[in-house]
């Protein structure tokens, strides 16, 4: 029979759920409505897949996430080399803390991404490598889980039908309007029901979020529930 002073500790130990994922604070995007729907932002220790085109706000969202990281270095792996650093700086990305892998060879770039994704001293990595195979995605997801990084893959909408290992899948698209409007649709979020899309209205000059609103599932924008962004 256990001694009385150990009874409480024993009960506490039994209550520990070893299978429960370790909660890590996500990288908040600085848009309260969106961050709340994402459970705190883009998850750390997991892979986020962002689908969308550059001109429709996909890069904007990814760079905004990197801009929120202040404590550690971020990395970018993009064989195509289209990042325009002044644009990233304009969005608040600290270029002095952005490690950019400028490797046009896809195989080498993928090796670099795999290596960086395993690195605990890097807070977040953005990768734009087309046609990643399922096994490669799985490796990257495991690497991110091990390192605790927020691994963000920016992918073409044409790849939406491919299998997903990411904890979070977002679809970014532009919305016509008098000023810049971006819709963030949550396609998949591990352990949560899919919230409705969020419409973000941006300032034309600063690219900052002016307002945010929840959209109905269908592309029916009547009756937006406006809220401060």
């Amino acid at each position: 029979m256990p001694m009385p002073e150990f009874t409480g500790k024993l009960a506490a130990l039994r209550a520990v759920d070893l299978h429960r994922p370790v909660a890590r604070a996500g990288i908040a995007l600085g848009v309260p409505l969106l961050d709340e729907r994402l459970g705190g932002g883009l998850p750390r220790g997991a892979m986020t897949e962002v689908f969308g085109h550059a001109a429709e706000g996909a890069w904007w969202l990814c760079l905004r996430a990197l801009a929120q990281v202040r404590d550690k270095v971020c990395a970018l792996v993009e064989p195509a080399g289209t990042l325009y650093p002044p644009g990233a700086a304009a969005l608040g990305v600290d270029l002095g803390r952005l490690l950019v892998v400028r490797e046009p060879n896809r195989k080498k770039a993928l090796w670099a991404l795999d290596r960086i994704a395993r690195e605990k001293s890097v807070a977040a990595t953005l990768a734009v490598i087309p046609r990643l195979a399922d096994t490669e995605l799985r490796r990257l997801q495991l690497a991110a889980e091990g390192s605790g990084q927020a691994l963000i893959l920016l992918r073409s909408p044409a790849e939406l039908s491919r299998a997903s290992w990411g904890a979070l899948r977002l679809m970014i698209r532009a919305e016509p309007g008098p000023s810049r409007r971006v819709v963030v649709e949550i396609l998949r979020m591990r352990g949560a029901a899919m919230p409705r899309p969020i419409l973000l209205e941006l300032d034309d000059d600063t690219m900052d979020v002016r307002t945010s609103a929840v959209l109905p599932h269908r592309a029916d924008h009547a009756g937006l529930a406006q809220s401060a962004g």
């Binding site: 890069w59 289209t82 990042l83 325009y84 002044p86 700086a89 270029l95 002095g96 950019v100 034309d204």
Partner: peptide, 25 residues
């Protein structure tokens, strides 16, 4: 408007005054 240098974190960067695109091709 920018140059590439070997990575050595800590270099301060200038923030552009005018809006700039995220990607350029």
């Amino acid at each position: 408007a920018f140059t590439w240098q070997p990575f050595a974190q800590g270099t301060e960067s200038i923030k552009p005054a005018a809006p700039r695109p995220a990607t350029m091709f």
